[in-house]
Design a protein around this nucleic acid. Structure first.
Lengths: 225, 225
DNA sequence: GTCTATAAATAGATAGAC
DNA sequence: GTCTATCTATTTATAGAC
C-alpha cells in the first residue's frame, strides 16, 4: 500500500480506538493489529504516539470538525428574523453532525477529561464563537422586543444544553434509545419550541393564543390576536 | 494508621485520581505516592486495581451518589402543583450536588466512555427513574391542562439537558466561568423559567401578560389577565 | 501495618533484514 | 513499505523482612 494511503488508514483506525478508549487507554499495538500491520509501521508514519494523537486532532479539526463558520450558519433565517428557523437549523446541524460522526463527541470528551489541548482548542475556536454569535442575535432580538430581557449567555447555555445533552444521550448513555426515540428533525423542532414558548399551556378560555406547534416559519407572530 | 482508616484514605485518593485521569490513566504507583504509602499497601487493601475501582464505584453509589430517592424529591411542591418550585428544586439539587462533588460527574463520564458497569448502573438505577418520575408529573399536568401536549420524555430531556450541560461546563469545559458566571440559584430559576415560559416576549400592546421573572412560586398563573 | 526488593507482563519505541 | 526481533521503561502485582 502507498505511503499516504497507509498513513490515512492507520489514522482512521486510531481515531476510532482513541475515541473509544481514550489516549492512554489505547495501545500502539492495538492500533497496529486493528489496521492489520506491524507496530513498526505505525511508528514509521508517526514518530511517537503523541504525534499520532496530534495528527488526529488536526484531522478532526480540519475535516469533520468545527471549521464550519458559526457566522455563516442560518444566515438567511437570521436576516429574516425567523427565530424558529434560526434555532431549528442550528440544532439540526449539531444533532446531525453528532450522529454522522459520533467519534467526534467521544474524542472531545476524552480530551476534555484528560485536559488535552484539543479541548482547549475546541473551546477557544468554536464554543466561544458560538456563544458570541448566538448571543449577539439574541441581544438584538431583545432590543427589538421579541425576546424577554435576560443574559443572552444563559439562553445559549440552555439551548445548547438541550441539544448537546440529547446527542450525548444518543451517543453515550442511551444508544438503544430506551428513554427517547425521536428523529433529529423532531428533536430540533421540540427544543426550539420549548426555548421560544416554554411548556406552559395557554389558559383554556383563550385557546387561539400560542397555537404554533413547531411547524414552518411561524416564528414569533403567534402572540398577535 | 488503623486498617480501615488507611483503606478509606487510599480510596479517597483513588477517587480523585481516577476522576481526573480515568481508570487506565491512573497508576497504582501514583495512588500510593499521593496517599503517602508504598504500592504494597495499596495491594494489601485492594487485591487488584480493578477491585479498587469497584470499591470506588460502590462508595460513590452509596454515599454521594444517587441514593437519594427521586420520588421523595420536591414532594411538597408536587402536591401543591407548584411547577416552578418543582423544576427549580430539582435543578438546584442537581447543580449543588455537581458543585459539591465535581469528581462524581467526571468519574461517571469516564465510566460511560470506558463502558464500565458504573455507567450502566447509574443509568438503570437513577436516570431511568428520574425520567419515569418527572415524566409522570408532566403527564399529569398535561391532563390537567397546565402543560402543552408533548412527549414528556422530550421535556425531561430538554430540562435535564440544560441543567447537566451547565454543570458540565462548570466542572469540565469552563471552570473559570469565561462564558457564564452565575449562581446555582439563578441558573435553576432561569432554566425553569425558560422551560415553563420560553424566551419569546409577550406582544408590546399587552404588557401585563407573562410578567413573571423567575421569582417565587408564581407558577403558571401568569396567563390570566 | 509497613516497607524494600523484585517478579512478570505490557507499554512505547528502535534496528536491521527483506 | 513491511516485517521480526529486541530494547527500555513502566505497570501491575507479589515475597518476605521488620
Amino acid at each position: 500500500m502507498a505511503g499516504e494511503d497507509r498513513k490515512h488508514q492507520i489514522l482512521a483506525v486510531a481515531v476510532r480506538l482513541f475515541s473509544e478508549r481514550g489516549f492512554r487507554g489505547t495501545t500502539t499495538k492495538e492500533i497496529a493489529q486493528t489496521a492489520g500491520v506491524s507496530e513498526a509501521m505505525v511508528f514509521r508514519h508517526f514518530a511517537t504516539k503523541q504525534e499520532l494523537y496530534a495528527a488526529i486532532l488536526d484531522h478532526k479539526a480540519c475535516t469533520t470538525g468545527w471549521k464550519f463558520e458559526p457566522a455563516e450558519m442560518a444566515a438567511d433565517a437570521i436576516s429574516r428574523r425567523d427565530d424558529r428557523a434560526v434555532f431549528e437549523e442550528l440544532a439540526l446541524a449539531a444533532l446531525q453532525h453528532h450522529q454522522d460522526d459520533p467519534d467526534f463527541q467521544r474524542l472531545l470528551l476524552h480530551s476534555a477529561l484528560e485536559k488535552h489541548e484539543l479541548a482547549q482548542m475546541f473551546f477557544d475556536q468554536f464554543v466561544l464563537r458560538v456563544y458570541d454569535f448566538l448571543g449577539s442575535y439574541i441581544r438584538e432580538r431583545q432590543r427589538e422586543g421579541a425576546f424577554v430581557e435576560m443574559d443572552p449567555a444563559i439562553v445559549v447555555r440552555a439551548f445548547i444544553g438541550m441539544v448537546m445533552h440529547h446527542s450525548l444521550n444518543n451517543n453515550l448513555w442511551d444508544p438503544t434509545r430506551r428513554l427517547l426515540k425521536i428523529s433529529n428533525e423532531e428533536a430540533a423542532q421540540h427544543f426550539t419550541n420549548i426555548l421560544l414558548n416554554g411548556i406552559t399551556a395557554p389558559m383554556s378560555n383563550s385557546e387561539d393564543r400560542r397555537v404554533v406547534e413547531a411547524n414552518g416559519n411561524a416564528s414569533n407572530q403567534e402572540f398577535k390576536e
